[in-house]
Design a protein around this nucleic acid. Structure first.
Lengths: 214, 214
DNA sequence: TACGCTTGTTGAGCAACGCTCAACGAATGA
DNA sequence: TCATTCGTTGAGCGTTGCTCAACAAGCGTA
């Protein structure tokens, strides 16, 4: 027999409103809490204790949904990356010649708003960890595809390499710029666009065939 | 010099009869072990237990040299970054017009050889960590200076932003290329050099962007 | 109401880790 | 020989990731 759960410890329990959730929902809740906490601190400082406290559950229950803390972190990263790709993708009704600019603008906006969690992921965990690196690589490939589609260029290995590199350029530039905005925003976007065009200039890559529909 | 072989090369197991070392030397030894371990795994997986075991000392002693584990990690990062800047800097006798190429070649070589530890540092330390970010920023500024000197350009805020961004481009490109070498090495170097010149071009006018808005 | 099955949930407890601290002992000088 | 310095030890504490046996809420069936 256990003691009355409502009066055992002061402040340890959150309202019992969230009792016994369906598995999928509990999972989503936990990932959501992780994403939110990620805006405040690096993944490494997100403890099982705090997450479970915020969710109003026991520490043990978290391990029912994620075998290890690492798995929980991976799930958070996946969610964050998926969110990023979704944001970067421009709507269908954007005219051909403006798509790339829209993609850049969205990416800048995303990094401006979610700078800390993004850095916490890309720079914070991505290294030395094979699985995280894989997740990051997948997200980057998505972005490369989005950019190439926006450019109306057919993907080739060399071109993909260049665009991936350009993404690194964009990331570094924006993060540096956020800390020290040496130029207005629209000019930064223009700079990034110019750099992309200069980098993927056709003379540096094999000519591709015309006629790829958008 | 010393009774102890003093691991002039990391990787050498210090004999269990580890003797009373001078403070500075012990410090260097511990950082050396950290650098060596960093080639095998991310910093987060380097435990005090293992480092002290390899050094042949007690766990407690490590905290005599580094107040916390984090401080120890920071010392490792600083050492690694210093090493990188030192490597990238070209010798004085390189002719003006080849300096930038040499810098790139050295950087490529460095990332090829030390890919894992580099990634483990730049991408792999506790993210969102202000001090780590500061160390990284400092190293990046060093590299920007080296590149600008090699280019013979005077530093301006905008130019520094561009070169910093180009470093991101280089990093991303090389790391992608290492995983999937879609072109020979010299071509990669050429590509990186071209990208740099295109990016810092004194007038980066968009050549023929259709309907590019101002 | 009673019974049983499924499954979300608990909480005590273990192991590993970072970290502290009082004390030890090798080197050194007087 | 004694005292001082300082590199070093090792027991031990608090926290944290993680396990596991048991509990209880929902639900069908009778």
């Amino acid at each position: 027999m256990q003691v009355n759960p409502t009066s055992s410890q002061p402040g340890a329990y959150t309202p019992p409103g969230g009792k016994r959730l369906p598995a999928a929902e509990r999972r989503r809740q936990l990932i959501g809490i992780g994403l939110q906490l990620l805006t405040e601190r690096p993944l490494g400082d997100i403890t099982v204790e705090e997450v479970s406290r915020r969710a109003g559950i026991s520490r043990g229950l978290l391990f029912n949904y994620f075998p290890t803390r690492r798995d929980y972190h991976l799930a958070i990263i996946r969610a964050a990356m998926r969110r990023m790709s979704r944001i970067a993708e421009p709507p269908d009704d954007v005219p051909e010649e403006q798509r790339i600019k829209v993609v850049i603008e969205r990416f800048v906006a995303f990094l401006e708003r979610r700078r800390d969690p993004y850095v916490a992921i890309v720079r914070g965990v991505a290294g030395g960890d094979a699985e995280v690196a894989a997740i990051y690589a997948e997200a980057r490939n998505d972005l490369v595809d989005i950019v190439l589609r926006a450019l109306g260029r057919r993907p080739t290995p060399a071109l993909e390499l260049l665009v991936a590199g350009w993404l690194g350029f964009v990331e570094e530039t924006i993060l540096t710029w956020v800390n020290k905005p040496v130029m207005p925003r629209h000019e930064l976007v223009r700079l990034l666009e110019r750099a992309l065009l200069a980098i993927v200039e056709r003379r540096t890559a094999p000519r591709d065939l015309p006629g790829s529909p958008a």
